[in-house]
Design a protein around this nucleic acid. Structure first.
Length: 166
DNA sequence: CGGGTTTGACCTGCGC
DNA sequence: GCGCAGGTCAAACCCG
């Protein structure tokens, strides 16, 4: 897998009770460390995955949209990002001693998936990988619209396909 | 009873 | 072709 770090992350983590992108008041979430940009064409850089086991994670996860991965220091395996997710699988993968969980967006017609696993090097971190673009607003935005969030330079979304407002 | 989780089986791609 | 590894399915189960 090829990915690289960037900060700040563009994905709309805007849940007030689990606001990873902002100063965290939650004891479980101490700090956001990184987000990872996964891209099929980015193969010129191997900033982190020096193990061959990582690169053996091949294109089986390729699919229907952009992939974004977050690396978050959290004791919680799943983080409420405002969307409803339904777990559909769990696997132990060779590249990590930890289990990997598979989720789909439970909204009808929305095929966005995410994987959640613990960092193989530091199990206090959780790696969450999103694939695809939601074809609907977050249920959360019905009563909380992160307009200022999306318009701020700090949290500007660099990937237009990820913007939740349209 | 409806929706989410669990979990083993199944599918698919890839390397040998 | 075979085996391995990762991803998905789906029936059983759980819980509010």
């Amino acid at each position: 897998m090829d990915f690289y770090f960037q900060n700040p992350h563009p994905y709309p983590y805007h849940h007030p009770h689990n606001s990873v992108s902002m100063a965290s008041s939650s004891p479980e979430i101490e700090a956001l460390s990184d987000y990872l940009m996964l891209d099929d064409y980015v193969d010129h850089q191997d900033s982190r995955s020096s193990q061959s086991a990582e690169s053996s994670e091949k294109a089986t996860f390729r699919g229907v949209g952009p992939r974004i991965a977050f690396r978050t220091k959290s004791e919680l395996d799943i983080m409420d990002d405002g969307y409803k997710w339904r777990k559909y699988g769990k696997k132990s993968v060779k590249s990590s001693p930890n289990l990997r969980n598979y989720y789909k967006c439970s909204s009808g017609g929305c095929g966005v998936k995410k994987r959640v696993e613990r960092d193989r090097d530091d199990s206090s971190y959780v790696i969450t990988t999103y694939e695809g673009v939601h074809n609907h607003e977050s249920p959360f935005t019905t009563y909380y619209t992160p307009i200022s969030f999306l318009h701020s330079d700090t949290f500007a979304c660099t990937n237009p396909t990820l913007q939740t407002t349209n």
